[in-house]
Structures are given as C-alpha cells and as structure tokens.
Design a binder for these strands. Sequence first.
DNA 1: AACGTTTAGCTAAACGTTTCGTCAATGGAA
DNA 2: TTCCATTGACGAAACGTTTAGCTAAACGTT
Lengths: 334, 334
Amino acid sequence: MATMKDVARLASVSIATVSATLSGASFVSPALKERVLAAIDELGYAPNAIASGLKSGKSSLIGLVVPDITNPFFTELVHAVQRKAAAAGFTVLLGVSDDHAGAEADLIRLMRSHQASGTIISPGSSEEDCGKLIEIAGKMPLVMLDNAPPSARADTVVIDNRKAAQLATDHILSFGHRRVATVSGPSHRFVSRERLYGFEASLENHGIEPLPDYVRRGDFHVAEACKAGLELINLPDRPTAIFVANNQMLIGVMQAVAQAGLSVPRDISIAAIDDFPWAPAFSPALTTVRQPIDAMADAALSCLMSRLNGNSEPAQRILLQPELVVRRSCGPPP
Amino acid sequence: MATMKDVARLASVSIATVSATLSGASFVSPALKERVLAAIDELGYAPNAIASGLKSGKSSLIGLVVPDITNPFFTELVHAVQRKAAAAGFTVLLGVSDDHAGAEADLIRLMRSHQASGTIISPGSSEEDCGKLIEIAGKMPLVMLDNAPPSARADTVVIDNRKAAQLATDHILSFGHRRVATVSGPSHRFVSRERLYGFEASLENHGIEPLPDYVRRGDFHVAEACKAGLELINLPDRPTAIFVANNQMLIGVMQAVAQAGLSVPRDISIAAIDDFPWAPAFSPALTTVRQPIDAMADAALSCLMSRLNGNSEPAQRILLQPELVVRRSCGPPP
DNA sequence: AACGTTTAGCTAAACGTTTCGTCAATGGAA
DNA sequence: TTCCATTGACGAAACGTTTAGCTAAACGTT
C-alpha cells in the first residue's frame, strides 16, 4: 500500500504538503497541488484512516447497536442511520446483541475501543443495566433509541409507546369490539410495559374490564407469539380482536390465525405496532401503528453531532409521535 | 481516555509489560500481571484498537457491502455474516450501496481506507464494473457473493440460480399449468439472467413455448413489480401462475393480487425465489425457493480467513444449492 | 569460579498521519 | 535601502500501540 511518504517522494514535496493538499485547508500552490494529485493517482494512494484517526483522535466511525437486525423495525432503523451517517461522512460499525445480556456491554466496549465518535444503541437491557452501559461508554457520546428507560442519563429518542398502543386499541374498539386480547412483549422491557399500559388505558376509557386471560406475554419473537395466538384462539370465550405489540409477534399471530383457518377481519380483527413493507401485501392488508423511523434516526444523529460539537447540556429526551395506518384487518366483531 | 502509559505508570511497570500482559503472549510474572490488571481496572482502561491497528497493520474489521439492506435476503445475510465474524473476533463495517452505481467503488475504497482485513460484497454492478471493484480493492481480499459474474477474478460464493428458477417453475408446472408468466429482475444483473434462463429452460423441458407477453422485467423492488403484476393480471389471456424472481418483487406481486381481489392459489398460483420469515404467515403460506444463507455466509468468511492466512491460490467459485420450500400458494389452474 | 542459558522486564524504534513552529522568499511600506 | 508581513513549503514531534533487541539477574553446568 502506498503511503503519503511515497506520494511525497514521487511528487518531490514534503509529507506535510501532501497532507495539506488532501485536507484542502492550508495554502498550496496550484502547481504543487497538481503534482501531488498526479502522484496520488499514479500510485493509487488511499489515505489510511487508521493513522489519521490515531493522530487526530477522531475516527469517522459511529457505532450502531441493535438487538435483532432481522426485525424489520431495526432493519429500517439501521438503513436510515446508515444513510444519514454516510451523508455526514461517517461509517457505521454494526453491532448486534441478539438479545443477549452481556453482549451490549461488550459491544459498547468494542465501539469505544475502535474510537467511534459516538454510538447509537437500542438497548434490550433492563433499566439498571442501561445505567451501566452509559458508564462503560465513558466520554464517548451515547444515544439511546427505542427501548430507553426515562431514568437513563443519556440522550434518548423514543416514541410515545403508550399512545401507540392506544391508537391501535381505540381503532379496534371503534368497531364495537368488547372482547379484545393482546400479545404483549417481555415485561423487563420498558416499551413492553408502556404498550401494555396504553392497551389497558384504552380499554378502561371505553369502560371495559381487562381480562387476565386476554393478556398474553410474548418475547417480541415469532414462535412464542404463535403459541400465544393459538391459545387465545382456542379460548372458550375467544376474543374478537387482538392487539399485537410488535411486528415479529404479528408474524406469529398471523401464522396462528392461518393455522386455525380463521378469516381476518371476519372472524377476528388484528392490529399491531410497527409498520413494515409486507403489511399491504397481505389479504387483507394489515392495520398497523407506524413508528417514525426516519425522524428517529434523524434525531439520534442530531444528538450525536451536537455532542461532537461540544454540547454538554444535560441529557435530553426526544419524544416522537407514532401514527395509525388504517388498512383492512379490523372490522366489526362477528 | 486512559492509555497504556497511564496504566504502566500506575502499576510501576513499562509499557511493554502492559502490552505483554494484555496480549498474553510473552512471560509476565503473576505478581506483575496482577498489578497491571488492577491498574487497568482502576483506570477503566480500554485498548485503543486504532493505535494497535496502525502498528500491527491489521484491524479486526471486515467490510460488508450490500445493495439493499431492507431486502430480507440481505438482512439475513448481514445477520449471518455479523454473527460469524463476531465469533471470529471481527467487527463488521457496514456499507449499503442502495443500488447506486458509483457507491460500490466508493465503499470498497472506504473499507480499504479503514484497513479492513477483507471485504465481502454482494455487487449490484454490471459484469465489467465488478472487475474494477477488484482492482480498487488492491491487496485487500475481496469475496463476492450472490450476484457475482463468473468472469470475476475474486473468490466467489453463489447459488445455482438457474436451478433455483427451475425448481420453482417445475413445481408450478407439476400442477398442469400451461400459461405461466414471470416477473424477472433487471437484465444487467447476472442473477436475473440466470433465473430467467432457468425459467425458460423449465418451460422448454415441458414443451411450452415462452410467450414474450408473459415475461416482465422488474427491478428487484416493490413498485415496479406491483405494476408488472397488475399488467399480467389484466392481460386478456391472463396467466394461471406467476414465477417471481425475488422476495421484494413478491411483495409487489402479492399487492397486485390483493388489489385485483384474486385468490391464491384458486385464481392464480405464485412461487418465488427467496424465502423469508413472513412467507408462512400468509394465507395461503407462500411457496418459495430458499437460498442457504448461513452456508453462504460461512463460505464467504472461510474464503476470507483463508486469504488472511496467506492462501494465494487462484480465485475459487463456490456453488451452493437452493432448496424448494413447498407451502400452499401453488395449485391446479382454475 | 567462570561460563552459558533461561527468564523477566525494559528501551526504543517503528506504523502513517496531522499539525505546530520554523524558515526562506517575496513584496510593500518606511 | 531596511524592515516587517505575508505566503508557501517544510521538518519534526506527536498520537497509542507492538515488537525486536537488549539488559540483568538467577540458575545449572563444567
């Protein structure tokens, strides 16, 4: 690999001049600039970001840690962050914790070790562990996204999960349903709890007593949700509608519905949190609550950039609003 | 940030001893080792991967470039590569070309600039551009995945795309269909051409003349495919089955089918290349051809590791076999 | 006792940049 | 002419590691 030294030698200038030419900052005469550029071209020189990073103490890398990249919500989040980061001249260092406890701490350490300018993380961790993560990050700016507890002393971007659940449940209830069930997320996650509160609040507002049998815990993944869906369907007092707390569990519930040979929304109405590309391809197209993923990525990156520019105000919590996308998977009870 | 120097001072040893302790290679007496470890702990020291990379010339980073991360095939590929890379002690530097022409070259340059130990790329580029990519990579090992032309002089991991298309088409034909259409991919892509050949070969083997009207070009994305699907459905001589060349276009075609109010497989049979988590959640569950994503990631990483270990044999081409997953979206013609 | 050998640890030189301070040359003001 | 600013380029010192080469002590062998 050619280095600046080689370029300098070929162009008969000093290393400093090559550096100046590349960074464009300092004055370099047009004649020299041309010689340098020609030499760079001839040698196929590419700057060594590692050396540059070592010297300057910055790295044009930003860490991104998500619990499950196969979940379309996170896929789109990664996509959005990647695109916006690239536009700002940063490259994404991807970490996937796969819901594994210690993995998040390790990944933060990794990002730090690679001198990432900052890290955006969507923690799967419990409330207390989030505090540890912030500690591990040290002086590397950390932005928490999605499942961030309010107690976290780091910049935070979340949606109003309670409202998201209410939006979906209100929509279901507007058709006159009284027997409404939910497949909820793992209780140690902040977002799960919020979504469950929202569901229950909506029922209460409509004067409906929530039945314990109608509240099933999933784990935000397919298999458990499918089981939960089947159980609900086989209840003697089968619910006429189900609110599902995320997209992966919606797959599971839809599988259960398909297996049971039920028709949506004739036999049962379905609504879920998380919109995704396949939702309109179903028959009937699925009604969901969309999270403003692009805006979330924007906000997270803005926080990060502002910290990089020396902003040292106390951590802020940015709250974004979800949006109901009405399609055709909800209708009147049978 | 604490450095080795700080640790060394606190533990009253030399920097070299700290380094030796960390790398575990050389002999360090238990007493010193303990002192060093204690100092590390006290200072919250984390090794600077950048400095280490600069000195050692290696970086524990591997590049991964995909054209479209929201496509579940690539999502799962990223997931698999990420997992296996992490297990081998590497971190993934993610690049997304978004099907943009020059982006791939830029991303390869970026990976090189970050001293990635190697890069795995699934090129969207044309055949000739792939040659350029290899050139840009220089001495950084490059492995091409999925859409790699046979002419590429780099290690290559592909599936038998012709066979994949034949598997799906043969399955359709086994129900007695004679009017079979396809929504195919962009013609500049090697995989599109192969899949189209496979489709046509299958028809020929069954003595069916392929109708030009029944062959539609998509672009591997949703919108175009939806349009193509609608056109096919509205043909005076509507096909009784459609073979779709990838998963994103399957979304589009399913949307078209839903819009037209057709029932699958009663009115029309559907089969596609690329399995994905949602396929079994449809009613009816969708029949697809599964690519061995895990094996592909394995093979790509193995190639890379072998190159890192100094293997300088000529580039090899690894061919993996796809697998038909029969569900319920194909049936006899109406 | 003199000599190698082994062990444990240290010193110092890289790695490829950025950047600060220096310096020569030029030119305008006194 | 002398002096000082300005401009354009350079030299050299970092940045935080790794590692080759070295020293010194401890030990076993003759």
